[in-house]
Structures are given as C-alpha cells and as structure tokens.
Amino acid sequence: MDLSAINWLTLLASLMVAATPILLAGIGELVVEKSGVLNLGVEGMMITGAICGFAAAYNTQSAFVGFAAAAAGGAALSMIFGLMTQVLMSNQVATGLALTLFGLGFSALLGQSYIGIKGIEVSAVPLGPLADIPVLGPVLFQHDAVVYVAIALVASVWAFLKFTRAGLTLRAVGENHDAAHALGYKVVLIRLAAIGFGGACAGLGGAYLSLVRVPQWTEGMTAGAGWIALALVVFASWRPWRVLIGAYLFGGITVLQLNLQAAGAKIPVEYLSMSPYVITIIVLVVMSSGRGRAALAAPAALGRVFHKSG
C-alpha cells in the first residue's frame, strides 16, 4: 500500500461532498424526531429524491429544478408516512420500514429509462478570492451551492429549535404530546410539518448523490445512506451541530476507505466498503451503552402514538 498516493487535500475536499447527503437527511430526521416521530423511511425518501431530482434535472437541464423536484418528491413520500402514522395511527417503526421498501421499488420503476445516462453538470459556487486561498481554498471554498446550503440548514435548524417560539412548540410536542395538546397545540399538524420537512431534506440528500456525487442514476444508489443518517441523529444526541460533526466523520470514513482501495490497501475491498456501516453500529452500541445517556437526550415522546382524547 502506498499512502503517499493519497492526495490528502482532495480527500478533505471530497469529505465535505461525501458528507452532504447524510448531513441533509440527518438534519431533516433530527427535526422529525424532535417532534416525537420516528421515521425509519429515510432511505426510501432519499432514493425517491435521487430519481426525482435526476429526472427533473435531466429533462430541464437545470440543477435547481432538479433539487426542487427532489425535495418535493421526498416530501410527498413522507406525507404517505405522515398520513399513516399521524392520521390513521399506524405503528411508526413498521410504517417507516415499509416506506423504505416502497421507496426503493418505486424509484427503480421511475428510473428505468434513466439508467446509464450521464447527468448534468453542477458547477461550483464562484466564491472569488476565497477559492484561491492555498490549502483552505480547495478544501472549503470550491464546492457547489448545496454543500453550503446544507451547513446553513444546520445553523437554521439549531437557531429555530433554540430561539424561536415555533421551535419551542416543536420540542414540546416531541417531549409530551398529551401536555402539548392540553395546552391547545395542534400536535398532528406540527408533526406533519416536521415529517414533511424531514422528507424534503432526505430528498435533497438523495438528489445530491444522483446529481453531484456520482452523478448518474443507478438502482439502489443510496446504498444505506439513509440508515447512516438515522444513526447520525442518535450519535448527535439530537443536537444539530453534532449532526454536522458526525456527518463529516462518516463522510471522512467513506472517502478514506475509497482512497485506501485506490491506494491498493492489503485489506479485502469488502472490509473497506463495509467500514462506514460497521462504524455506525459501533457508535450506536457505545452511545446506547453509556448508562442511558443517549436515551436521556431522546425526545420523551419519540415513536409514541398520539391519540387525541377528550
């Protein structure tokens, strides 16, 4: 193995790109879980976003339209989940899993005529002199807009949850839906809004894969990124900035293992490929074993069905 073959600057730069899909999906799921809903359908919403985004962008040759379509597609799929769990009060875990399976199949159906087509070019944001700074420039300032949008989204979610009345209401609903209802807050509506936001974010994350990272459409191309995003929320103890840190950590591992493969590491490729998922499992085990610390940070009403009575 020749470690010197790895270009560490490129690696750091591609880390931000690799992290963006799970960052987007993760921050969306964080909002959903903060409202007390556990949506395990992130993977399904991501891949639906990936194909919606790819198809729309290809047909209009506009990246913006592509991302908008991806967000709409993810949100639309999440509304199926919202209808099932919030209105019909189905079990959230089962519905979420079904949503993932449905999304995988549905996206394959939609994407049949797009297989093998080269996607459109998404250019970097011209940041002028910033992009020319040595070292920092290529790592931080030569990316496309979505990378920065994702970071801005983390900041907005953090500020929203911490400083706004609506954010406080959302946390309250996730903490104790019965009390929130008794105070006159519309639990179901608030949760539907959160679910929709989560779906749109997951859709964006998926489209980032099919429009920027890869960029083309293949079936099942999210390859478990949705599950990593779910783990990310737990890893982050439901705090927005930690989602960012976690996403870069996982992004780093993903990029590193690719680079190690390219550098001809003497480890079978399969082990390298599975490393992000293994790390996900290890992180979850460690977080959950720490005498319920992760459980303490979790919204108290997470995953519980709200039944309006009286």
């Binding site: 009345r165 946390r171 309250a172 019965d178 009390a179 008794a182 105070l183 919204p299 108290a300």
Partner: peptide, 18 residues
C-alpha cells in the same frame, strides 16, 4: 391540570412560555 401538563426536558421558563 391534575396531571401536570409540563415538559420535563424543558426548563421552567420554556414551560411557562408554552
């Protein structure tokens, strides 16, 4: 309320504001 309509993870001021 008889069964308190409070949010345990939030602080007093946030509970009052809600």
């Amino acid at each position: 309320f008889q069964h308190f309509s409070l949010f345990e993870a939030l602080d007093v001021a946030e509970n009052v504001a809600l």
